[in-house]
Structure formats: C-alpha cells, structure tokens
Amino acid sequence: MDVFMKGLSKAKEGVVAAAEKTKQGVAEAAGKTKEGVLYVGSKTKEGVVHGVATVAEKTKEQVTNVGGAVVTGVTAVAQKTVEGAGSIAAATGFVKKDQLGKNEEGAPQEGILEDMPVDPDNEAYEMPSEEGYQDYEPEA
C-alpha cells in the first residue's frame, strides 16, 4: 500500500510541476504579447503594419512553449490582441483601416495563427491545408 501511495504522490508532483510550467509559459506569452502591443503603439504610420505582424510573430513563438489545451486559448487571445492593436492603430490615425491585415508588401496577414497546427491532446499534428499553395516548377 505504501508503494501505491508513494507512486500516487510522485504522479501528483509531476502534474503540479507540469501545471506550473504551463502557467509560466502562458505568463511569458502574455508578456511578449504586451511587449508587441507597446511596440505597435510606438510606431509611426509606416511601421504600424509591420508592428502588428511582430506582435503576432512574438506571440506565436511563445505559444510553442505552452502545451496542451492552453495553446488553443493563448492563440485565440493573441489573435484578438493583434486585431485590437490594429483597431487602436486605425482609431489613433497611425494607419488607414484599409491597410490593416496586410503586410508591407500588401499581402493579407489573416491566418497567421489560424494555420498553425495545434492539437490540445498532444496526440497528432496535421499540416495546414494546401489550398493556398501553388506547385513550383523550376525553369529549365
């Protein structure tokens, strides 16, 4: 019985440690998101679009440190934060509304985080759909 109880105690310690790591990862992701939003706020009209992409990228980098179902929630929060940063930029006159959601080359930025393969159960990952990809044929 002692062996059984000791095993359960060790398992509990492992769960607590994993929860603490997840909590730490979420806190880091939130900190990076805040950094990115402050970065966007300090940019001029020309830099705002690039700044919004930076927020998304920093958040995406930190999301990889967070495991399990938390990833889905962090990704949703990050996307809403990026959308909010863009709205703030438009409201303050840093950028025109028609410039939001495009990178410096004018290509749409939507789907940055949505296409990231995420499995809350950590069982399997699927690649994003290939609808947006084109076949590449090298020139002879």
Rank of each mutant, 00 (worst) to 15 (best):
E130C: 07
K97N: 12
V40F: 14
G25M: 12
P120Y: 08
M5N: 02
T33W: 14
F4E: 00
K60R: 09
N65T: 08
A140S: 10
V15L: 09
N122G: 02
E137G: 07
G25A: 15
K21T: 05
K34T: 02
G31C: 01
L113V: 15
E28D: 05
Y125H: 09
T44L: 10
G25F: 14
Q109G: 03
G67A: 13
T72R: 10
T33H: 01
E137P: 04
E35K: 07
G67Y: 11
F4A: 00
K60Q: 04
E20M: 09
L38M: 13
T64K: 04
E137C: 07
Y125W: 07
P117Q: 13
K34H: 04
G36I: 15
G84W: 10
P128E: 06
V26R: 00
Y133M: 09
G31F: 13
L38D: 01
P138M: 07
T92C: 14
L8K: 00
S129K: 04
A107V: 07
T92M: 04
D2A: 01
K32Q: 03
V48W: 15
G67Q: 08
G7C: 15
G47T: 15
Y125I: 13
P120S: 08
G25K: 15
P108Y: 05
K6L: 07
A53M: 14
E110P: 12
V82M: 11
V66W: 14
A124I: 02
Q24W: 05
V63D: 01
T44S: 11
A11I: 15
V82S: 04
I88Q: 03
V118M: 09
T44F: 13
F4Y: 01
P117V: 10
Y125K: 13
D98I: 03
A30M: 14
V40N: 00
V118G: 10
E123R: 04
V49K: 13
T81H: 03
G73R: 06
Q79R: 09
D135T: 09
D119M: 09
V16N: 04
K60N: 02
A124G: 09
G93I: 10
E139F: 13
G67E: 02
Q24F: 15
E105I: 01
K23P: 00
T75A: 15
V74L: 15
E104M: 14
T92Q: 03
N65S: 10
K80M: 09
G132E: 13
T92F: 06
T72Q: 11
A30G: 01
V63Y: 11
S9Y: 15
A56Y: 09
E130Q: 11
Y133G: 10
A107M: 10
E137Q: 05
V48P: 00
G25I: 12
G73W: 12
K23A: 04
I112E: 05
K32L: 14
A29D: 00
Q24A: 11
A124K: 14
T33F: 02
A11K: 00
V63I: 10
F94Q: 06
G36V: 11
N122P: 07
G14M: 15
T72D: 12
V16Y: 14
K43Q: 04
Q62I: 08
V63T: 02
A56L: 13
V74S: 01
A69E: 02
T44N: 01
V16A: 06
G86H: 10
S129I: 06
G132P: 04
S87K: 05
G47L: 13
S9I: 12
V37K: 01
T22A: 14
V63H: 01
M1K: 00
H50F: 09
G7K: 10
A140Y: 11
V70C: 04
G41K: 02
A78D: 01
Y125P: 10
H50N: 07
V118C: 13
D115K: 09
E110K: 05
Q62R: 12
A11H: 00
S9K: 12
G25T: 15
D121R: 04
P108K: 09
D119A: 11
L38C: 08
K58L: 13
K102P: 14
Y133A: 07
A78G: 05
D2G: 00
T59P: 01
E61K: 08
A69N: 05
